[in-house]
């Protein structure tokens, strides 16, 4: 009788284990269903589904900590020393900050060596290559400070303005209105949002040495659903209020000009 009791205990234990396994498997299936739902939607439609956004954020948090925080910071505010942009504001180097834009950047990176990455141009090293003298660069810095609403030296800024609009200089990429072009990653200089620091010295360095920052391509490294989740997470971080999010979504709906990287 003792062995009979033992057998029944074993059977009961096995049933409990099987039940737990079945529960876990059910959860995994549920998780897969959510991942599928996340991917089936067009990128920018995800933000219209709060449940899906919650799922994506929960998925992306540990991924962000593991893969992105080293450059963009655990608080998503970027790292000027690395030229890694803040992901928590509304300024975008590439695209207009939609989930689609962000996802494109995640998929193919920036100057990652893949032709689908954002690699049309980069900021030339004006000082290093001798295209502009140190004096010219100092003047341009003052003009840029003026553009961004910071304190500036009017005389130097006036001279800097001449250099800024000179042939093959700043305005070619940043535009006559200095508002940049997110089609090829030229930042808006009027917003006072900077990747590599905002002091006059930082700006001098950026113009003198240029900017040739690189972001890796994550396609083939992370599964698609994780890339989508990260895109939603970054979108969510930079669109904290639903009204803001809805506004960006309505305005953009995937515009020409490629994917998004924060400036």
């Amino acid at each position: 009788m003792a062995s009979l009791r033992l057998n029944w205990k074993l059977i009961a234990g096995a049933l409990v284990l099987l039940g737990a396994a079945a529960f876990a498997a059910d959860r995994a299936r549920d998780h897969q269903a959510w991942e599928r739902r996340l991917l089936i939607a067009l990128p920018d439609q995800v933000v219209a589904d709060p449940q899906l956004v919650r799922f994506a954020i929960a998925e992306a948090r540990p991924l962000y900590a593991r893969h992105c925080a080293a450059c963009h910071g655990a608080d998503m505010r970027g790292n000027p020393a690395l030229g890694a942009p803040s992901l928590s504001d509304s300024a975008w180097l590439y695209g207009s900050g939609t989930v689609y834009d962000i996802e494109r950047t995640l998929l193919y990176g920036v100057r990652s060596g893949r032709s689908r990455s954002h690699n049309i141009t980069d900021m030339p090293a004006f000082g290093l290559t001798g295209r502009l003298s140190d004096g010219d660069i100092r003047s341009v810095v003052q003009y840029v400070l003026q553009l961004s609403g910071d304190n500036y030296d009017p005389t130097a800024a006036n001279e800097g303005r001449r250099v800024f609009y000179g042939a093959a200089n700043c305005s070619d990429c940043h535009g006559m209105d200095a508002r940049g072009d997110s089609g090829y990653g030229a930042p808006d200089l009027t917003r006072n949002v900077w990747n590599s620091g905002s002091s006059a010295q930082d700006l001098f360095r950026a113009i003198y040495f240029g900017e040739h920052r690189v972001m890796p391509a994550w396609r083939g490294v992370l599964p698609l659903e994780q890339i989508r989740a990260l895109a939603v997470y970054v979108y969510w971080a930079s669109h904290p209020t639903p009204a803001q999010a809805a506004n960006t979504y309505a305005q953009s709906m995937i515009t020409p000009g490629g994917a998004a990287q924060k400036q």
Partner: peptide, 13 residues
């Protein structure tokens, strides 16, 4: 080759 060189080219001399 482009992919291999990309990260190193991020650093300016």
């Amino acid at each position: 080759n482009a992919q291999v060189a990309a990260p190193l080219l991020a650093e300016q001399p």
